[in-house]
Amino acid sequence: MTGFLAIHSSAIVATTLPDAVVFAVAALIILAGAVGVIVERNPVHSALGLVIALFGVALIFLLLKDDFLAAVQIIVYAGAIVVLFLFVIMFLGVDKREVIVRESLRGQRPLALALVLLAAVGILLLGAGAHYALGASSATGAATSQPGGEVAALGRSVFTTYLLPFEATAALFIIAILGAVVLTKGRGAPSEKRGEDGSAGDEPDDVSMSDGPGSSEDLEIGAGEQEGENGSGGEVGGVSTSVVRAPSATSQEVEE
């Protein structure tokens, strides 16, 4: 559905505006967003900058007549990944005071700037005169010459040439879900535990846990309790599954 809409918008873009203008606008959007990510001191603003940059990238995809990826870009990146970022930022809570970006090492920033500029200029110089592989035999077949257009071609390549990577993503999702569950399961929030046993002053001291066998037993019981009330952990797990399912859901659309 979104792919369908995107095709139309792409057609509009392609027919009414010259490519160069679209490219310039998209590039401007991307760079503005990227600058926003880097210089904004508030993480929320950085996340918004990221959204802007990602929309610009989607625009570039449209310009390159890649409607499906443009749609997926917006759905997955802007719709899921950035929302996840914002969710975590809100969950952790941004401090009211002005965030001061500290420089941990003296002279690190000029050094980083110099290194990155050097690398970027190097790649540009190397790539400027470079010729891409004209006439390289296309292993997966030309995109346009196949029936069904881009989306069908992509779907076909995913189920033929890239079948193994497609199946490997299953393992990727397994480990991502597993990791998210493990990370959030753990011991849980100490504040909840404090509320339970009423010892508000008892700070979760990391050192005391490790000394005697008695305290480690305490911890085991604590872990067992946590397994039962796993609410907040499941919440994040739920987010993770919704995120990771997005691409596979779209790929099912491709199949149809």
Binding site: L69, V76, S138, G141, S157, L172
Partner: peptide, 21 residues
Amino acid sequence: DIGGQAAVFFVLVVAAAEVVV
């Protein structure tokens, strides 16, 4: 060549998984 677009497809998948963890 469709390979590049397929690569983007997988990058999206990887990015989602990596962000979750």
